[in-house]
Design a protein around this nucleic acid. Sequence first.
DNA 1: AGTACCACCTGACGGC
DNA 2: TGCCGTCAGGTGGTAC
Length: 262
Amino acid sequence: MPELPDVEVFRRRLDAVGLPAEVHRVRVLDDSLLRDLSRQRLAKALNGQALTATRRHGKHLLVAVKGDGMLVLHFGMTGSLLHQTADAERPAHTRVELWLADGSVLRFVDQRKLGHLALTDDLDSYVAEHDLGPDALQLSRAELTELLHARRGGVKSALMDQAAIAGIGNIYSDEILFQARVHPKADAAGMDDRTCGRVHRQLRRVLQLAVEREADPTRLPRTWLLPHREDGAPCPRGEGTVRKMQLGGRGVFYCPTCQPRP
DNA sequence: AGTACCACCTGACGGC
DNA sequence: TGCCGTCAGGTGGTAC
């Protein structure tokens, strides 16, 4: 699930709790998301402390903790963040809970346990340590063009490379390229300025609209590729047929008619 | 530098 | 019904 739009939805959900919000107690139901962070360190960092502000960089959500430091949430493939009342039933696969002073609870749910939690001092050092590129929505057209021209290899790989651009994954890279009518394997460096401009425009449009619709696939336009990710499905533009190919072991969907090989 | 492949996890689905 | 392979919106390590 979680690419930039999903994580932005989680961020807004956390903001809507009403910050600052005091953490009454941390409850870890499954250690595996903590990785090298101990329960004790997490509890010490959060118990009795207030969450004061949220930031998002790419697919990472960072929450400032009063005093110092930030809590980092990464959602892997199946992670999500919920804010629930005390009497709400705990969803399956809930891994960590932050019980707040007002009696409500933030729940980190992650079926496949590929997400993780971490602590860091500040956003900039976290971004540097983890070699993350600029956030996808912060990139200007000129910056994106320069970045694409500096790469060897295909444009989809470039869009998905978190060290180049942070926030775009398999689903939304397919959508951006479908909307921009660019073949996923088009040579990034060989794309002319007009084409790069189209990718930039669609990158912003796709991600922003997805955020507006709360990254809910059922609320996204039927004309998008996203609801038609099936080999042989009719292209939602009406002409071609959606095809599936492999790239680095992942399924890539595109329309050969709309997105011809250059 | 880019790409392929495996590993980390769990669950859903289709075929037999 | 049960078993098995495959696949899933991510990422890190490794090898070419």
